[in-house]
Amino acid sequence: MRVFSIFSGLFSPILASLGELAMLAGDTFGSIARGRIRMGLTIRQIAEIGFGSQLVVVVTGAFTGAVFTAQAYFQFASLNMETAVGPVVTLAMFRELGPALTGLMVAGRVGAAMSAEIGTMKVTQQIDALRALAVNPVDYLVVPRALAMLISMPILVVECVGLGVLASYYVGVHVLGITGVYFVANVQKFTEGSDIMMSLIKGFVFGGLIVFISCREGLRAKDGAVGVGRATTATVVTSSLAILITNFFLTMALNILFPAGQR
């Protein structure tokens, strides 16, 4: 009995949170399906989320690709496998690092801002004012952000991976002396469309996680400025953990659809 109460005490909040997230996502997709889309707000959010996040995502991708290339080269050089550096870095960027790092950076930059903005609206009664004016907060606040995030995230992932691979090429070929032809040939040989698909699917899923966690935390904010701060922190922590945990399960599941090493 005591074990059960400890178990339920531990897992009830998690299950409740998952339930709320699922309901918010269901409500959002329901609104999208019914055409309750505000194009102006969605375009503004795409600019904020997609365009505004480019620098941070591109820099993250480029330097991750560069440092991963250097480290892989130092290890592989002792085995005379320098030409494997390109495909290893490219596959890692496509399948894991690109989507996960983009997700983490966007969660920190956009998720936190989203939750702070909606949370401030909540504690200053602006969301009540929306409701009082017969405007559904999910339609007005969540739908444009969700659409913008689901459109922007796969593009940001591609940019992150693209810059990572370019940086890898530059460091591998021009700094560390790997033969450029071998680098490119091996990247082409070992990289397939399925790797790009995996990257895009992960970007899409992580985008969904970030936007629904951020909006939920914002919509639940209470107790003034302290509550908004709490919601923002919870957004970054929960989104980051959700991305890392989901990434593992997505990798396992997507590997069934797009098996690695079958070339």
Binding site: T124, Q125, A129
Partner: peptide, 11 residues
Amino acid sequence: GMLFQDGALFD
């Protein structure tokens, strides 16, 4: 229509 205590204008 509702007038909130502090107005609740969209900032």
